[in-house]
């Protein structure tokens, strides 16, 4: 049985902010199904009393002194922007009329 449906792939694509085409959904549905079945093997290991590891470095809350340090120049930070405007990053409309 497939672990993932076409509709779920379309939903995942939306969550992932990918405007996939219908053909891509067909292709990805089969591939994601194979991948998810392969990685589901993690469920075969007995890990009942084993804690999770998210990271290999035993560091918590690395802080520095609260002082102004060198940072990226504003114009340099904006230099790669697709549509800089008046020292800001401009984007298309965020809210439609009435929202």
């Amino acid at each position: 049985m497939a672990t993932i449906s076409r509709e779920e792939v379309a939903h995942l694509a939306r969550l992932s902010r990918l405007a996939v085409t219908d053909e891509e959904i067909d292709m990805f549905a089969g591939q994601l199904d194979t991948i998810l079945q392969a990685v589901a093997r993690v469920g075969e290991v007995d890990v009942e009393d084993v804690p999770a590891t998210s990271h290999n470095v035993d560091l918590v809350n690395v802080l520095r002194d609260d002082v102004i340090d060198a940072c990226l120049d504003r114009d340099l930070a904006l230099a790669g922007a697709p549509d800089p405007f008046s020292n800001r990053f401009r984007v298309p409309q965020i809210l439609a009329e009435g929202e």
Binding site: V39, A40, V42, V45, V47, V50, P51, A52, T53
Partner: peptide, 16 residues
């Protein structure tokens, strides 16, 4: 729980 949490625990087993 079935994927990410399990995978991170398997990671601990590998380390141990």
């Amino acid at each position: 729980d079935a994927y990410y949490d399990k995978a991170q625990r398997v990671r601990t087993v590998v380390i141990r």
